[in-house]
Amino acid sequence: MTICDDPDLSATKQERELASLQNKEHGRTEQFVRHHAGWMLAVANRVLRDRSHAEDAVQNAFAAVFKNLDSFNQKSSLKTWMHRIVVNEALMLLRKQSSTCEDSIDPFQSIFDENGCRIEEDWTTFRTPETILQQAQSSAQVIELIGRLPESYRVILVLRDIEELSTTEVADMLETSEANVRVKLHRARSALKKLLEPLIRGGAL
């Protein structure tokens, strides 16, 4: 299940929701906004890491949704379509606030010896995600560590691995090449693995 899937919202329900909005049924707009605002705010906050900017992104996203509702072609689900819109709006705000310099990700990359062999500290235990997340505050720690990645890498990791967009979609949204997305995603994953190692090994962060 992707993070933007909504088990409560079957295809028929979505069609009804869409029809009532397009027919401008009384009270439906408010119900629609209240139903979707929560997850949209969570998505925008994951991209922007700033509550106030996330609220702006959600407001802009709803404006775009209402403006383009008549042209929504139902090739994807309503929620998937709205998910792309809120991500786009968040990215637009992120571009405005991004600084041009960011920390290097190199210190968190894999290292190799003169034979081309990987140098990896010995692993004696691997804790599973389920075990790790049973510990209080673990998910907050993981989210905090994702936030430590340099911005351009963090965004790609969030869009690919958390929002579950395809490489092509991410490249389009960030107006960059798919090759660049792939390189940055690999480096971001490597860095995140390094940052999460203490948690995976079972030690304190």
Binding site: I3, S139, A140
Partner: peptide, 30 residues
């Protein structure tokens, strides 16, 4: 193996945070 676990951790943590610690939507935004 550690890479796979960390990708899963990123995914699951975000999902858990959204479900268990949802961001309250301010009425002024609605």
């Amino acid at each position: 193996r550690a890479c796979r676990i960390s990708i899963e951790l990123a995914k699951t943590s975000a999902r858990e945070a959204e479900v268990y610690f949802p961001i309250e939507v301010p009425e002024k935004l609605i």
